[in-house]
Design a protein around this nucleic acid. Structure first.
Lengths: 145, 145
DNA sequence: ATAATAATTGACAGTTTTAGTCGGGTATGT
DNA sequence: ACATACCCGACTAAAACTGTCAATTATTAT
């Protein structure tokens, strides 16, 4: 039960992007240096984040990435979804239209319930909250306990 | 974010063991046939389940496995812990004594909070509840929603 | 126009984890 | 003694993860 480093990187990169954004685009190179994530790997992640409507890109000199929406409207689960990291704990439940197990699904409800808790929690946290926390100014809701 | 099949097998096997237990030991061979899990793989899992005080073994002819404790006192998270499947979503938090990240733990609280939710949920479900559900006689608390 | 910047994309590879198999051993009841 | 069933560690094939590399396209500054 591990969150892949891909997902962890994506969240960290997004917090960093928002933290250092002043209206003009932020380059991946800057994020790469600040977060010690390889530039080429970040590129991979941001292609997916763009497709997921989390960021938008500005090409050419002075270009980079901007948030596609206000930080308040970006939830952590959306970031993870965008980099194609499943939040569902078992493979038979990947399809939207429910579990396709044909038999012996005694444990189905356990994983289904778990998936709900994970989703609920991660969708309750916004990028804005994480960024405020990173600034040492916790927002109105804390992420733990 | 996947629950390994090892953990899924362990939970399924435990439900099956309890379901077909009438006081005398249940052999892994029977569980293997009923759940279509390889016998040798089950052996691996049950060594760990025994060490985790989930089951106890009876050797020799007529032997097999029994629950080490009443089903009501066995929680799903204990089963998963026993087969050495971490329930903590990030590796830096594996140690009991907290996260050892030396820096940039902006996202720490997210994973910590997530770990708590996962633990809380899985510890709220007992083997007895799962077994009753499997019998088509849902217990007092449902596992989902 | 041209050059520099920066995103975009696909192919590829090393490493680690997972999911098992295999071959023996050990305890116990009949 | 012998069959049963647990016990244990080494080994392996496959998959996933975590990136790298090379080449391209779009945009802006000069």
């Amino acid at each position: 039960m591990r969150m892949s480093t891909k997902a962890q990187y994506a969240v960290r990169a997004m917090v960093n992007l928002n933290l250092y954004s002043d209206g003009s685009p932020v380059t991946l190179r800057d994020i790469s240096l600040r977060e010690s994530i390889s530039l080429t790997y970040l590129e991979q992640l941001f292609v997916k984040l763009r497709r997921g409507d989390i960021v938008k890109s500005v090409r050419g000199p002075g270009g980079g990435y901007l948030l596609a929406r206000p930080a308040k409207e970006i939830q952590v689960d959306e970031i993870i979804d965008s980099v194609e990291e499943s939040l569902v704990p078992v493979s038979c439940m990947d399809q939207k239209r429910g579990c396709v197990c044909d038999d012996r699904c005694v444990t189905h409800n356990v994983w289904h319930g778990l998936a709900e808790r994970i989703r609920d929690f991660l969708s309750s946290i916004t990028l804005e909250e994480l960024t405020l926390e990173a600034k040492g100014m916790p927002g109105k809701s804390k992420t733990n306990s």
